[in-house]
């Protein structure tokens, strides 16, 4: 059982979650993730590790379907059934020079340990984040503290550039900026778009793929991705891969393989979910 020591909704639908797990706290490296289970019948949910402190580690979780809903409906003091990690390969880190980082969704948080490590290695770090609207931006002060330059894009233009990370990126490159390395974390669509931008400029680009995962240890094969024509397991070979060589079409297709099950899971969900059941019975008020 793993205690939730801190949990609150940072902005609508982005939940900061701090969990006590000394092993992860001691060993996690930038770019690694953990797998969480809310209760004994939950799916296993892979979540990026953002920071560690003493015997705890921090994550940002967006509610998507039933499994993430169970987690975000838990409260401080509740316990997760299982937490495994750190999993995956640490991100490639080196002294590249000028590095651009892009984050969207949960990637705004997940990009943070990379920014900090790259900065510590002596790189110049340019960070760009995106959200639908200004009220959905979070973690900005922390990111600014580890970035040399910091940009924001919103889909509705309420803050920063009207558009996405890719739009800021295009503008910077057109304005003559040169980058020696790029990393993007966010929804698959955003990572694909950004990789398409950096490709013609030959900026080495890494993306953290969020394939569907089960065990997270290289056994089930459910996280298969094709990179440069080779089959890789995102959980053990990644999650970081070369964004210019990922087969994006296949990835998107594989990610939507279980739409029916994900939707039908809601029909019988409360059965298996203590947190939601509590919420339904009015206890949470």
């Amino acid at each position: 059982m793993y205690e939730i020591v801190e949990k609150y909704e940072e902005v609508p639908n982005v939940h900061r979650l701090v969990v006590r797990e000394p092993n992860i706290a001691a060993k996690a490296q930038p770019g690694q993730f953990a797998i969480l289970m809310a209760d004994e019948q939950s799916e296993r949910v892979p979540i990026s590790i953002v920071d560690t402190k003493d015997d705890t580690f921090t994550m940002f979780i967006l509610e998507l379907g039933i499994s993430s809903a169970k987690i975000v409906n838990m409260k401080e003091g509740d316990t997760l059934e299982a937490v495994t990690g750190p999993l995956g390969m640490p991100a490639d880190l080196g002294k590249y020079g000028r590095v651009v980082l892009g984050g969207g969704c949960y990637g705004i948080g997940a990009i943070y340990p990379l920014a900090r490590a790259l900065k510590e290695l002596g790189n110049e770090v340019v960070t760009i984040i995106e959200a639908r609207s200004d009220y959905l931006l979070y973690f900005q002060e922390e990111l600014k503290a580890v970035s040399d330059e910091f940009f924001v894009a919103t889909s509705d233009g309420t803050e920063g550039t009207n558009g996405h990370v890719q739009d800021v990126l295009v503008k910077l490159i057109r304005d003559g900026e040169r980058f020696d390395h790029a990393k993007f974390i966010g929804c698959t669509y955003m990572m694909m778009n950004c990789s398409h931008i950096t490709s013609p400029y030959r900026i080495p680009t890494k993306v953290a793929l969020n394939t569907i995962m089960l065990d997270g240890t290289g056994m089930c094969g459910c996280c298969r991705v094709s990179v440069e024509g080779e089959t890789k397991f995102a959980c053990v070979d990644g999650p970081e891969f070369d964004g210019h060589h990922v087969d994006w079409d296949e990835l998107m297709k594989r990610k939507s393989s279980y739409l029916m099950e994900e939707m039908l899971a809601y029909q019988t969900a409360p059965h298996t979910c203590k947190a939601l059941e509590k919420a339904y019975s009015g206890d949470s008020k």
Binding site: C187, S256, L259
Partner: peptide, 10 residues
């Protein structure tokens, strides 16, 4: 591209 992400309560 982003199919299957429309079930959250928020």
């Amino acid at each position: 591209f982003n199919s299957g992400i429309m079930k959250a309560g928020v």
